[in-house]
């Protein structure tokens, strides 16, 4: 059976914080924080490389999380894959369909909260938070008010520049 049918959750390089009804996953390789709702977290935890999609549907229902279809699980798998949370990338099941259409179709036949993963990237350098967000020295000079010395420096924080006023 292909790994598409037996998805495996990635564990390497992740910091995982479980919380009631949700999960926070921080990816140290991409510096992204992901927030998984209960449904997405359950599907992710069930991706052990052995379970098939049908097994995950059964486990989901057996854990009283509601009645769902394989498409429901695929919706979670697609998101997990695109966010790099699976060992191997999975070909998107709903390629070419709008997210709204997919959610509508799956939502109508599922009695469970749809799997949702929200993500946010941390800056590559902590110094970026002190930046005036100029894209070049000349931009910084134009913002004379923001940068009284009209001096920018982008060391360690490309592509943002920092005013050294």
């Amino acid at each position: 059976m292909s790994e598409f049918q037996n998805p495996k959750a990635r564990k390497r390089g992740l910091v995982i914080q479980e919380m009631p009804g949700e999960m926070l996953v921080y990816d140290t390789e991409t510096n992204k924080a992901h927030c998984l709702n209960d449904s997405a977290a359950f599907v992710w935890a069930s991706c052990d490389g052995v379970n098939t999609i049908s097994d995950i549907v059964r486990e989901f229902e057996a854990n009283s999380k509601g009645t769902v279809t394989e498409d429901f699980v695929w919706l979670a798998i697609d998101q997990l894959s695109s966010k790099g949370l699976l060992e191997a990338k999975v070909e998107p099941k709903f390629k070419g369909k709008s997210r709204r259409d997919v959610l509508k179709t799956i939502g109508l036949v599922s009695v469970a909260a749809l799997p949702i993963i929200a993500s946010l990237a941390a800056p590559q350098s902590a110094l970026a938070a002190t930046s005036c967000n100029c894209s070049s020295n000349s931009d910084c000079a134009l913002q004379a008010g923001m940068c009284t010395t009209q001096m920018c420096d982008n060391r360690g924080m490309t592509p943002s520049f920092t005013c050294v006023a």
Binding site: Q17, E22, L24, A33, S119, L120, A122, S125
Partner: peptide, 20 residues
């Protein structure tokens, strides 16, 4: 939610890259 809170504050957290 708390997880959304952690996700949203992560970009402002200085040691997140060094000591996640």
């Amino acid at each position: 939610s708390p997880a959304e809170g952690i996700m949203t504050i992560a970009p402002y957290t200085l040691p997140i890259l060094v000591n996640p």
